[in-house]
Design a protein around this nucleic acid. Structure first.
Lengths: 199, 199, 199, 199
DNA sequence: TATGAATGAGACTTCATTCAT
DNA sequence: AATGAATGAAGTCTCATTCAT
């Protein structure tokens, strides 16, 4: 990467950081380009040298945030099979407790709301999710030797997003009492025990 | 209720229906009052005879949708204890499949996003959630005779919102394979089996 | 006057009272018909049975207020010539002190501002002023036997409106110290002493 | 001042000139931003780069006009004591005759009306008035050696605003005949002759 | 590369007035 | 006589985007 390119990349990150900030604080459609420019210490006009329009910034943010979430899932690769449920529970509870959730609530609800109206955003979110699921399903199938790996994967992920969502609706959520049930739930999902096929 | 009051109520519903429509299609902040008025077959100005401002419409929608969600939970009261997990699973899967989810995705993401910036919206959402939890916790404690009813309640609800959320990120979600795991998960959450207290 | 006419007149007064209230509080152009109707305990639509439009209400208010001001000047007719300056001074100071000034500040500034843009309002104000001046000039000429009665009249009235105006710009105005100078000024204006014709 | 700052200042003046124009013609609340923008040869939106809102423009106009009025009073500083009453009379009559009155009628009535509903406007007007009075009182006390300088000052200013006001109510005002009485009045106000303290 | 002045469409909201009842 | 629902134009203000410098 040339010096010019490096500088360009740094400027882009500056804009994205500012944009993420504003999006969290005001939402996609209330965050003005002027405000973003100000926080990125850049003129409004200049942002258009790096992004075609605001939509492109939103897409870039969605992409970056989704990628970061995926990264956080990558660490589960290294976890001992026997400990997977426990570690995942810990991570889920932890991230909720620190409000740095994988699904960083503020931005995430915004993203999911947008994803229903903006096909590009939907594509980005779904692509990253597919990537995470592929990793996790691989883990579940190959390392844990379980069947129906895709379904188990989705059920595991239900717990993550469900928990984040829950905290918004019940801010008094008692994490201390949840943690045991959450581990039990994850263990159940990862249990080889034959399940009567539903429906 | 007088004729005038009935008419007034009907007009208000007209506005709310139109608003819900627009909010689903465009989101809270992209749905213009002009568009809402048009769909409500009413002049923009006249909407202000029924609602102080757009915020009030948003609040009313959030309230109405949350109340409807609560209603859907009310039916669980009548369910046989032994069947609760199965019935809840069925409802969760069903509502997802029919896209009439308790957490009607489109509007719900919007609501949760808003809830982080608008204290009034947060209060409404949390009030309804508390009401649903009180019902469910009562069921779990009194009819099922389980301890930690609040935590189990929250975990049950994690499944509902988590599943809805999942569908947005993975539109190819294989519901047929999920249903068994979901029932197993709910049964696990409602199982009296002692759980090692977490963390 | 028939019963119907009396009732009609009463309703009109109701509107005017409400309008005067609102005009003082919000100004002509910020006082909405809805607010006026509410204070007049009448529906907005019904006001149009008595007044063609808002302009007509403004005109009626200007007329009524000007007439009341004229009435207040009428009492000077009965005053002993020797006491005229003193009594006028007293009235001027009094009305200022009680904020019920002849030129009831709130409404009066509004009226004078309007009078420069609305010929009908101008005509009303000037007609009443002419009436007051005619009375006063007659007093000055016939009872006090002074020359240049019109000019003296205008100078007397300069004191009234000037004082009201002053209070707006200097709310700390020390009336106690003004009163002496005001009497002296009025005496000077009413003094027969030959004045070198100016300019 | 940099070129940018100079340009900015010029643009602001452009807006103020246009606004003053519109305010005189239509009044504060009838003068639309669109009209002001048009006369300032600027887009409506751009005005908001210089002024936070319309209120701010009104405040700026009130400030500018009041400052100009104050300036006009400053010239009296240089006047020979013996000539003060005569010069002030001349200026009062002159400014009335040229309709460039210190209290430029059109705008001034508007300002005084506003001042009763807008505390910021009131503060501005009263601040400038205090400044003018301080100058004049100093003149009266130090150069003319008179007592009760504040009261005399206020009485002098009663003449200015009273005269402007009078012209609105009596457009046929005979200035030629007023001038003598006005000089006499001002002389009387500035006369050292002991006055029986009133009330 | 960088600025920030400038635009103009469109957002929410108010309000005088009309009209069916 | 009386209501108040209803209209729609106009008001203030915001904001994504462009462009001269």
């Amino acid at each position: 990467m040339t010096g010019g390119e490096k500088r360009r990349q740094a400027r882009i990150e500056q804009v994205l950081d500012a944009a993420a900030d504003c999006f969290v604080e005001f939402g996609f459609h209330r965050a003005g380009m002027a405000k973003i420019a100000e926080r990125a210490r850049m003129s409004p006009g200049h942002i258009y040298h790096y992004f075609e329009n605001k939509e492109a910034i939103i897409a870039a943010i969605v992409d970056r945030e989704s990628a970061r979430a995926a990264e956080r899932f990558a660490e589960f690769d290294a976890v001992d099979s026997a400990q997977l449920a426990t570690v995942m529970t810990e991570r889920a509870i932890e991230s909720i407790a620190q409000k740095t959730d994988i699904l960083q609530s503020a931005l995430n609800m915004e993203m999911l709301a947008e994803c229903q109206r903006n096909p590009e955003v939907a594509e980005i979110i779904q692509r990253h999710d597919r990537y995470i699921r592929d990793q996790l399903a691989h883990l579940i199938h190959d390392k844990l030797g379980l069947d129906r790996a895709e379904a188990r994967t989705d059920m595991m992920m239900v717990q993550f997003s469900g928990l984040a969502n829950r905290l918004l609706r019940n801010p008094d959520l008692d994490l201390k009492n949840i943690v045991g049930l959450m581990r039990q739930t994850m263990l159940s999902i990862l249990s080889p025990a034959p399940v009567t096929k539903g429906e």
